[in-house]
Design a protein around this nucleic acid. Structure first.
Lengths: 247, 247
DNA sequence: ACTGTTCCTTGACACAGATCAAAAGTGGAG
DNA sequence: CTCCACTTTTGATCTGTGTCAAGGAACAGT
């Protein structure tokens, strides 16, 4: 691999393996190293990208759309273990077998990197290895935060937590400005929300209705949620707010 | 840092940052690189190693004993998000603030590495960076497996899942032989088990009694559990057994 | 041996959320 | 526009687990 390109990463040291289409800080040069091993794949809403146990010869990052990572028990109970939004990474270097089922919940474009050359690139390009470690640590933190939600929060708190996570994420991507009302689109059906939260879809629906009735959120259609008071939502989620939700 | 020692890692390429005291494959030479930045700390059962939010100037690996990673809500609800057994690693390179509270649940010895030099070593020693990435990915898989337990399993399945995870772990460390009866020590109080499983300690106690009554487990004292039939336990846990529990 | 402390077990009851069932929206295809 | 499939909402009832309460077992210190 041509290790020559390494300096180019300095222009965007914190996101070398994220696809430039989704990173405002990236210029068009920095992913040249990846150009020759990448290709795009599109999926339509509802399509399964890969099944748990499938042989997987690529890793990928989400360019646009939303996908979910789910685990399923033999009797059909399913738990979502991750939500893939634009710029998120999926796949495990060094392992050929997919651990989770990945499903597109909206029209989805992924940027795939052939696994073998990607692995090789990691070992020859410390910047990328380091960034990958950071992203994995972030995912681990997110997974552990979600363990608290799943294990200890009430249905209402779970819904509020999900909304606040999506809202925070939107804020991060610059889709929302601090100070003004937040409006977020929930990119999930009620059933998918239930699978994320460890609830049934009926309970999800009831709690959303309750939050609406209590003025915590305003619904425009089924998927579009306006949040008049983010601090209020954070309180409902059981988090100590601190206004730190724009981090 | 003296990068000269790198070849030494080849004798134990899969566990460079684990402490040699807990890795049968390691000889006494391979951790020389770490010698000058490490020190040991001991804790007694019940002692808190660090609080969430504390400034943390080291990362560490468990030499002996058991520790837990917990998250707590303002009203006192707590969720265990990780169990640290010998050879496990804790701490986040690149972040000074502890994300979780770490508590010793038995007498505990940790091998600490000062964070700054450790971080520097990561960037100059690809072997270690790579191994750290692998360990983090393993932890992420474990966290996600636990999300399924927390979100979708019944109390009885949760208990069985916890026992089978501890049993598998013991088997990995060579404390148990396949074919013969497994005997495992649960290194947790009923309350700690409850915090791990998202239950109350009363429910934990009841379900353990039920598993005992049904012959799935045999208790010797409060903490020592004999598992006459591992496949049976796996079925109770809701896992597809496959006999793959020795992996 | 006594006493206090901590951990564990068991019982009675309450309630959050699951389950079962039905109806009302919603949106795409023809 | 109408039809049909799918998603969502809402209601009635059931149940698994939480809550509250009491007592037992193990153990350390005096």
């Amino acid at each position: 691999m041509q290790q020559v390109v390494a300096p180019a990463f300095k222009t965007c040291s914190d996101c070398p393996i994220r696809h430039r289409a989704v990173c405002a800080k990236c210029d068009s040069q920095e992913l040249e190293l990846l150009e020759d091993i990448k290709y795009y794949r599109s999926f339509s809403a509802g399509q399964t990208v890969m099944w748990a146990g499938d042989h997987m010869d690529f890793v990928a990052s989400v360019v646009s759309g939303v996908a979910t990572l789910t685990q399923t028990m033999e009797d059909g109970r399913t738990q979502m273990v991750g939500l893939l939004l634009p710029s998120d990474f999926v796949g495990r270097p060094g392992r050929a077998e997919a651990a989770y089922t990945v499903t597109a919940t909206s029209d989805l474009v992924m940027c795939c990197f052939r696994r073998k050359p990607f692995e090789q690139m990691i070992s020859t390009t410390p910047h990328i290895a380091h960034r990958l470690l950071e992203m994995t640590l972030d995912e681990l933190d997110a997974a552990r935060e979600w363990m608290l939600v799943l294990g200890r929060k009430t249905a209402r708190e779970k819904i509020a937590s999900l909304l606040s996570i999506i809202a925070r994420r939107d804020a991060l991507l610059g889709l929302a400005a601090p100070g003004k009302e937040l409006q977020v689109e929930i990119p999930l059906t009620r059933e998918a929300m239930a699978d994320y939260l460890g609830l049934t879809l009926e309970t999800v629906s009831r709690q959303i209705s309750a939050l609406k009735r209590d003025g915590v959120i305003v619904l425009s259609g089924k998927r579009l949620v306006t949040i008049p008071d983010m601090d209020r939502l954070m309180t409902e989620a059981g988090d100590d707010s601190d206004g730190g939700y724009l981090v």
